[in-house]
Computed example of a mutant assay.
Amino acid sequence: MKKLMVMLLALLPSLAMAAGGGNVHLDAANNDLSDKESLQRGARTFMNYCFGCHATQYQRYQRVAEDLDIPTDLMMDNLVFDENAKIGDLMTNAISEDYAAASFGAPAPDLTLVARVRGTDWLYTYLRSFYADPSRPFGVNNVVFPSVGMPHVLEELQGTPRQVFETRTIDGEEVQEFVGLESDGNGELSPGEYDAVVRDLVNFLEYSAEPMKLERQRLGLWVMGFIVIFFVLALLLKKEYWRDVH
């Protein structure tokens, strides 16, 4: 019974992150884990805009630098903001769970495995679905995750998105129907440039969730090839062994 309780408690963060969403259309992220430049840009965006609250505590700075072809000195000078951190340290941040809970209503979840929990399409759509909502504590809400508890940290890049409605007549009655989001144009990036930044960020988060994914897939092809060759040899051996019997 005690083991069962421990397993359930371990699942709670994933279950909490899986809450919310509803039947919202998800846009395809179309990530490419082989694109090192995209992963480097994604790492830069993550460290500058997300790492203040969200850690990736199951990663190490050194592993990220090696996998993404980032020189160690460049990594330490530009992507590691803790002056006491070493290149071999885990990627944890300074914010405590108590402070995060007091600030945001709940501790900011670790994002190492978020791409596996949520999916890349969900993340890509979510980060492009914030909109202004004065009723919320941080002045924003999210179409994909209603009543979201975090600010729109990429707002300076995107601008302030607002809901767009169209008036339609249904059964002789005029109703306001939500048709999408539109930025106020005050962001540093155009809509296309912002989408590219989000795609790079999601690409990095997908890498974080499984750094060995490409290697696993490559080895999988070799394993399948070996199985096919072994099967052919075994079949020929069987025929040779039973030839005189039949």
Rank of each mutant, 00 (worst) to 15 (best):
P13D: 05
L74I: 11
S147W: 11
I95E: 14
S96C: 07
C53H: 09
V143P: 03
N142Y: 01
Y126I: 02
R63N: 13
E83T: 11
D89G: 06
G119M: 02
M17A: 10
T160W: 03
T72W: 07
G192T: 09
V202H: 10
F81L: 08
A101M: 08
D32H: 03
E66K: 10
D73K: 08
T92H: 09
D69I: 01
W222T: 13
F130A: 11
D244S: 13
T92P: 00
E210N: 12
L221A: 11
S38Q: 13
D133V: 12
A43E: 05
E210H: 07
L11G: 14
L39G: 07
L11W: 05
L68V: 06
V143G: 06
A115G: 04
F178H: 15
M150N: 11
V140T: 09
S34H: 10
E240Y: 13
Q176N: 15
E97L: 07
K86E: 09
G220M: 09
W242F: 15
S147L: 10
A115F: 02
D32E: 15
G192F: 06
R216S: 10
L214P: 00
T92C: 01
E66A: 13
L123T: 01
L221D: 08
D27S: 13
L235S: 14
E156Y: 07
G119T: 04
T92M: 09
D89L: 01
M75T: 00
V197W: 01
D27R: 09
E97M: 06
F81A: 09
M1Y: 13
G52R: 13
R168G: 05
D244A: 11
D244M: 11
Q57G: 14
P109Y: 01
G52E: 05
L9N: 12
V164P: 10
L33I: 02
K238S: 04
P146M: 12
P151K: 02
P134K: 14
G225I: 07
V148N: 15
H246E: 11
A94E: 15
W222A: 12
L237N: 07
Q163E: 10
Q62D: 15
V228M: 14
R243E: 04
G42D: 10
E174A: 12
P71S: 14
A65V: 03
L9C: 12
E174H: 04
V117F: 00
D195T: 01
G220T: 10
S96F: 01
A108P: 05
A10Q: 08
V143I: 09
N84Y: 11
M76S: 02
L233D: 01
V179Y: 11
D69H: 08
N84C: 00
G185N: 06
G180K: 13
A10T: 06
K239S: 06
I229Q: 04
E97Q: 07
F81Y: 14
F230W: 11
P191A: 11
D89Y: 09
S14D: 04
V197Q: 15
E215H: 09
L154G: 08
I229V: 14
K239N: 08
N93K: 05
I229F: 12
G22R: 02
K2Y: 08
G20K: 05
K3I: 06
N141I: 00
A132Q: 13
L9E: 09
D98A: 15
Q62N: 10
K239H: 08
G159R: 07
A28F: 04
L68F: 08
D89I: 07
S14M: 02
S38N: 02
S208V: 03
H25V: 04
L221R: 05
G185K: 05
A234K: 12
T160G: 00
Q59K: 09
E240N: 07
V144F: 03
